[in-house]
Protein backbone atom coordinates (compact mmCIF):
# COMPACT_ATOMS: atom_id res chain seq x y z
CA UNK A 1 0.00 0.00 0.00
CA UNK A 2 1.62 3.09 -1.19
CA UNK A 3 0.76 6.69 -0.51
CA UNK A 4 0.68 9.00 -3.49
CA UNK A 5 1.72 12.61 -3.41
CA UNK A 6 -1.03 13.53 -0.97
CA UNK A 7 -0.25 11.12 1.85
CA UNK A 8 -1.20 7.58 2.85
CA UNK A 9 -3.99 5.96 0.93
CA UNK A 10 -5.30 3.80 3.74
CA UNK A 11 -8.33 5.11 5.58
CA UNK A 12 -7.72 6.62 8.96
CA UNK A 13 -7.54 3.81 11.50
CA UNK A 14 -9.37 3.82 14.82
CA UNK A 15 -7.60 5.25 17.85
CA UNK A 16 -7.33 1.87 19.55
CA UNK A 17 -5.69 0.26 16.52
CA UNK A 18 -3.21 3.12 16.29
CA UNK A 19 -2.34 2.89 19.99
CA UNK A 20 -1.82 -0.86 19.70
CA UNK A 21 0.41 -0.37 16.63
CA UNK A 22 2.58 2.17 18.41
CA UNK A 23 2.83 0.02 21.54
CA UNK A 24 3.91 -2.92 19.38
CA UNK A 25 6.60 -0.81 17.67
CA UNK A 26 7.72 0.48 21.06
CA UNK A 27 8.06 -3.04 22.45
CA UNK A 28 10.03 -4.06 19.38
CA UNK A 29 12.34 -1.06 19.85
CA UNK A 30 12.79 -1.86 23.55
CA UNK A 31 13.68 -5.44 22.67
CA UNK A 32 16.21 -4.20 20.16
CA UNK A 33 17.71 -1.88 22.79
CA UNK A 34 17.89 -4.74 25.27
CA UNK A 35 19.77 -6.90 22.79
CA UNK A 36 22.15 -4.01 22.10
CA UNK A 37 22.83 -3.13 25.71
CA UNK A 38 22.55 -6.41 27.59
CA UNK A 39 22.90 -9.41 25.32
CA UNK A 40 25.57 -8.13 22.94
CA UNK A 41 29.02 -8.00 24.47
CA UNK A 42 30.37 -4.47 24.29
CA UNK A 43 33.98 -3.60 24.87
CA UNK A 44 33.21 -0.40 26.72
CA UNK A 45 36.88 0.32 27.24
CA UNK A 46 37.40 0.22 23.46
CA UNK A 47 34.49 2.58 22.98
CA UNK A 48 35.97 4.97 25.54
CA UNK A 49 39.40 4.89 23.91
CA UNK A 50 37.87 5.41 20.45
CA UNK A 51 36.04 8.45 21.70
CA UNK A 52 39.23 9.76 23.24
CA UNK A 53 41.16 9.31 19.97
CA UNK A 54 38.46 11.14 18.02
CA UNK A 55 38.26 14.05 20.44
CA UNK A 56 42.04 14.35 20.60
CA UNK A 57 42.35 14.53 16.82
CA UNK A 58 39.29 16.63 16.10
CA UNK A 59 41.25 19.91 15.66
CA UNK A 60 43.49 18.15 13.13
CA UNK A 61 40.46 16.91 11.23
CA UNK A 62 38.87 20.35 11.27
CA UNK A 63 41.72 22.72 10.34
CA UNK A 64 44.86 20.63 9.90
CA UNK A 65 48.01 22.21 11.34
CA UNK A 66 46.57 25.61 10.62
CA UNK A 67 48.86 28.45 11.79
CA UNK A 68 51.99 26.79 10.39
CA UNK A 69 53.75 29.71 8.72
CA UNK A 70 55.82 28.32 5.88
CA UNK A 71 53.53 25.60 4.60
CA UNK A 72 51.38 26.17 1.54
CA UNK A 73 48.11 27.84 2.58
CA UNK A 74 49.52 28.20 6.10
CA UNK A 75 49.07 24.55 6.90
CA UNK A 76 45.31 24.73 6.46
CA UNK A 77 43.94 21.23 6.08
CA UNK A 78 41.08 19.01 7.04
CA UNK A 79 37.53 20.25 6.76
CA UNK A 80 38.76 23.85 6.40
CA UNK A 81 40.70 23.01 3.26
CA UNK A 82 37.78 20.95 1.91
CA UNK A 83 35.51 23.96 2.29
CA UNK A 84 38.10 26.25 0.70
CA UNK A 85 38.56 23.83 -2.23
CA UNK A 86 34.82 23.63 -2.71
CA UNK A 87 34.40 27.40 -2.49
CA UNK A 88 37.13 28.23 -4.99
CA UNK A 89 36.02 25.49 -7.38
CA UNK A 90 32.41 26.63 -6.98
CA UNK A 91 33.22 30.21 -7.97
CA UNK A 92 35.34 29.05 -10.91
CA UNK A 93 32.94 26.41 -12.16
CA UNK A 94 29.96 28.75 -11.93
CA UNK A 95 31.62 31.18 -14.33
CA UNK A 96 32.94 28.37 -16.51
CA UNK A 97 29.63 26.52 -16.60
CA UNK A 98 27.76 29.71 -17.43
CA UNK A 99 30.00 30.37 -20.43
CA UNK A 100 29.98 26.74 -21.60
CA UNK A 101 26.23 26.42 -21.15
CA UNK A 102 25.55 29.56 -23.18
CA UNK A 103 28.02 28.43 -25.84
CA UNK A 104 26.27 25.05 -25.94
CA UNK A 105 23.06 26.78 -27.01
CA UNK A 106 24.72 29.17 -29.44
CA UNK A 107 23.72 29.07 -33.08
CA UNK A 108 27.35 29.47 -34.12
CA UNK A 109 28.94 26.07 -34.75
CA UNK A 110 32.45 27.23 -33.77
CA UNK A 111 31.10 27.97 -30.28
CA UNK A 112 28.67 25.09 -30.00
CA UNK A 113 30.84 22.19 -31.08
CA UNK A 114 33.74 22.77 -28.65
CA UNK A 115 31.22 23.23 -25.83
CA UNK A 116 29.46 19.97 -26.71
CA UNK A 117 32.79 18.15 -26.93
CA UNK A 118 33.93 19.49 -23.57
CA UNK A 119 30.65 18.72 -21.81
CA UNK A 120 30.26 15.22 -23.19
CA UNK A 121 33.86 14.15 -22.64
CA UNK A 122 33.97 15.39 -19.06
CA UNK A 123 30.60 13.92 -18.21
CA UNK A 124 31.59 10.53 -19.55
CA UNK A 125 34.80 10.38 -17.54
CA UNK A 126 35.17 9.63 -13.82
CA UNK A 127 36.42 12.53 -11.69
CA UNK A 128 39.45 10.54 -10.62
CA UNK A 129 40.63 10.33 -14.24
CA UNK A 130 40.11 14.08 -14.67
CA UNK A 131 42.20 14.70 -11.56
CA UNK A 132 44.94 12.44 -12.89
CA UNK A 133 44.91 14.25 -16.23
CA UNK A 134 45.36 17.65 -14.68
CA UNK A 135 47.83 16.52 -12.05
CA UNK A 136 50.17 14.43 -14.18
CA UNK A 137 49.81 15.94 -17.62
CA UNK A 138 49.14 19.63 -17.21
CA UNK A 139 52.80 20.16 -16.15
CA UNK A 140 54.00 18.23 -19.20
CA UNK A 141 51.83 20.19 -21.60
CA UNK A 142 52.51 23.63 -20.13
CA UNK A 143 56.08 22.99 -19.04
CA UNK A 144 55.34 24.35 -15.59
CA UNK A 145 54.70 22.89 -12.20
CA UNK A 146 51.51 23.54 -10.33
CA UNK A 147 50.88 23.10 -6.65
CA UNK A 148 48.67 20.26 -5.47
CA UNK A 149 45.98 22.70 -4.45
CA UNK A 150 45.96 24.34 -7.89
CA UNK A 151 45.73 21.02 -9.75
CA UNK A 152 42.90 19.90 -7.49
CA UNK A 153 41.03 23.18 -7.92
CA UNK A 154 41.49 23.20 -11.69
CA UNK A 155 40.30 19.63 -12.12
CA UNK A 156 37.32 20.11 -9.80
CA UNK A 157 36.44 23.33 -11.64
CA UNK A 158 36.61 21.72 -15.07
CA UNK A 159 34.66 18.67 -13.89
CA UNK A 160 31.86 20.58 -12.17
CA UNK A 161 31.80 23.16 -14.97
CA UNK A 162 30.55 20.53 -17.42
CA UNK A 163 27.66 19.55 -15.16
CA UNK A 164 26.83 23.20 -14.43
CA UNK A 165 26.80 23.87 -18.18
CA UNK A 166 24.04 21.29 -18.55
CA UNK A 167 22.13 22.92 -15.69
CA UNK A 168 22.52 26.35 -17.32
CA UNK A 169 21.30 24.92 -20.61
CA UNK A 170 18.27 23.33 -18.96
CA UNK A 171 17.58 26.57 -17.10
CA UNK A 172 17.70 28.65 -20.25
CA UNK A 173 15.49 26.17 -22.08
CA UNK A 174 13.00 26.26 -19.19
CA UNK A 175 12.34 29.95 -19.80
CA UNK A 176 9.22 30.05 -21.99
CA UNK A 177 10.11 30.49 -25.66
CA UNK A 178 7.55 33.28 -25.97
CA UNK A 179 9.70 35.51 -23.75
CA UNK A 180 12.60 35.23 -26.12
CA UNK A 181 10.50 35.63 -29.23
CA UNK A 182 8.70 38.65 -27.87
CA UNK A 183 11.98 40.28 -26.89
CA UNK A 184 13.44 39.62 -30.36
CA UNK A 185 10.31 41.04 -31.92
CA UNK A 186 10.75 44.31 -30.02
CA UNK A 187 14.09 44.73 -31.76
CA UNK A 188 16.56 43.62 -29.12
CA UNK A 189 19.64 41.81 -30.36
CA UNK A 190 20.12 38.19 -29.25
CA UNK A 191 22.87 39.23 -26.83
CA UNK A 192 20.56 41.79 -25.25
CA UNK A 193 17.78 39.23 -25.03
CA UNK A 194 20.11 36.89 -23.18
CA UNK A 195 21.28 39.56 -20.76
CA UNK A 196 18.02 41.34 -20.09
CA UNK A 197 15.34 38.72 -20.51
CA UNK A 198 16.49 35.11 -20.50
CA UNK A 199 19.36 34.82 -18.02
CA UNK A 200 17.74 36.76 -15.15
CA UNK A 201 14.81 34.34 -15.28
CA UNK A 202 16.91 31.26 -15.95
CA UNK A 203 19.20 31.92 -12.98
CA UNK A 204 16.24 31.94 -10.65
CA UNK A 205 14.93 28.65 -11.99
CA UNK A 206 18.36 27.08 -11.71
CA UNK A 207 18.91 27.69 -7.99
CA UNK A 208 17.86 24.29 -6.56
CA UNK A 209 19.82 22.38 -9.20
CA UNK A 210 22.84 24.61 -8.59
CA UNK A 211 22.76 23.98 -4.87
CA UNK A 212 22.53 20.22 -5.31
CA UNK A 213 25.40 20.33 -7.78
CA UNK A 214 27.46 22.21 -5.20
CA UNK A 215 26.65 19.55 -2.62
CA UNK A 216 28.03 17.01 -5.07
CA UNK A 217 31.08 19.23 -5.54
CA UNK A 218 31.67 19.36 -1.81
CA UNK A 219 31.51 15.58 -1.63
CA UNK A 220 33.83 15.35 -4.63
CA UNK A 221 36.53 17.37 -2.88
CA UNK A 222 37.24 14.20 -0.90
CA UNK A 223 38.79 12.83 -4.09
CA UNK A 224 41.56 15.42 -4.03
CA UNK A 225 43.09 13.12 -1.46
CA UNK A 226 44.33 10.73 -4.18
CA UNK A 227 46.92 13.28 -5.31
CA UNK A 228 47.85 14.15 -1.74
CA UNK A 229 45.97 17.38 -1.01
CA UNK A 230 45.67 17.48 2.79
CA UNK A 231 41.92 17.88 2.95
CA UNK A 232 39.61 16.08 5.36
CA UNK A 233 40.01 12.61 3.88
CA UNK A 234 43.80 12.80 3.78
CA UNK A 235 43.83 14.06 7.36
CA UNK A 236 41.63 11.14 8.37
CA UNK A 237 44.08 8.75 6.77
CA UNK A 238 46.98 10.44 8.49
CA UNK A 239 45.24 10.15 11.86
CA UNK A 240 44.36 6.54 11.10
CA UNK A 241 47.97 5.72 10.24
CA UNK A 242 49.06 7.12 13.57
CA UNK A 243 46.35 5.60 15.72
CA UNK A 244 46.26 2.20 13.93
CA UNK A 245 43.44 0.57 15.97
CA UNK A 246 40.57 3.02 15.52
CA UNK A 247 39.61 3.29 11.83
CA UNK A 248 35.95 2.62 12.70
CA UNK A 249 35.68 5.67 14.94
CA UNK A 250 37.82 7.90 12.74
CA UNK A 251 36.02 7.24 9.46
CA UNK A 252 32.65 7.39 11.21
CA UNK A 253 33.59 10.85 12.50
CA UNK A 254 34.71 11.97 9.06
CA UNK A 255 31.48 10.65 7.60
CA UNK A 256 29.47 12.56 10.19
CA UNK A 257 31.39 15.77 9.47
CA UNK A 258 30.61 15.48 5.75
CA UNK A 259 27.05 14.50 6.56
CA UNK A 260 26.40 17.55 8.72
CA UNK A 261 27.66 19.92 6.02
CA UNK A 262 25.90 18.23 3.09
CA UNK A 263 22.64 17.61 4.94
CA UNK A 264 22.40 21.26 5.94
CA UNK A 265 23.00 22.27 2.31
CA UNK A 266 20.40 19.83 1.00
CA UNK A 267 17.81 21.20 3.44
CA UNK A 268 18.63 24.65 2.08
CA UNK A 269 18.07 23.36 -1.46
CA UNK A 270 14.68 21.99 -0.48
CA UNK A 271 13.65 25.29 1.09
CA UNK A 272 14.72 27.19 -2.02
CA UNK A 273 12.74 24.80 -4.19
CA UNK A 274 9.61 25.66 -2.23
CA UNK A 275 10.22 29.38 -2.64
CA UNK A 276 10.34 29.20 -6.42
CA UNK A 277 7.42 30.80 -8.24
CA UNK A 278 4.83 28.12 -9.15
CA UNK A 279 4.92 26.73 -12.64
CA UNK A 280 8.68 26.96 -13.05
CA UNK A 281 9.87 23.50 -13.93
CA UNK A 282 13.28 22.39 -15.02
CA UNK A 283 14.55 18.98 -15.98
CA UNK A 284 18.28 18.50 -15.80
CA UNK A 285 19.53 15.74 -18.08
CA UNK A 286 22.10 14.27 -15.73
Amino acid sequence: MVGGAGGPVVKRQGTLVRIITWVAWGLLGLGFLRVLLVSATWDWDFVRRSLHVVLENLPLLLVGRFPAGQEPLWGLGGLGLSVLLALVAMVGSFGFGLVAGIARLSARPYLRHPAVLYIEIIRGTPLIMVIFWFYFFLPIVTGRNFSLFTSAVVSLTMFTGAYLAEIVRAGIQAVPAGQREAALATGLTSGQVLRHIVLPQALQIMIPALVSQFIALFKDTSLAFVIGVTELMAMAQAVNNREIYYPFAIYLTVGLLYFIACFALSRLARRLERRLPPGTLMEVPS
Binding site: S222, M233, Y246, P247, Y251, L252, Y258, F259
Partner: peptide
Protein backbone atom coordinates in the same frame (compact mmCIF):
# COMPACT_ATOMS: atom_id res chain seq x y z
CA UNK B 1 22.70 9.26 5.49
CA UNK B 2 24.22 7.46 2.54
CA UNK B 3 23.53 10.22 0.05
CA UNK B 4 25.25 12.93 2.06
CA UNK B 5 28.51 11.16 2.78
CA UNK B 6 31.14 10.97 0.03
CA UNK B 7 31.57 7.52 -1.48
CA UNK B 8 35.28 7.59 -0.67
CA UNK B 9 34.58 7.90 3.05
CA UNK B 10 32.04 5.09 2.84
CA UNK B 11 34.47 2.82 1.02
CA UNK B 12 37.17 3.50 3.62
CA UNK B 13 34.65 2.85 6.35
CA UNK B 14 33.61 -0.52 4.95
CA UNK B 15 37.12 -1.60 4.08
CA UNK B 16 39.21 -0.33 6.99
CA UNK B 17 36.68 0.49 9.69
CA UNK B 18 34.20 -2.36 9.76
CA UNK B 19 36.49 -5.30 10.43
CA UNK B 20 37.96 -3.70 13.55
Amino acid sequence: FFRNIPLLVQLFFWYFGLTT
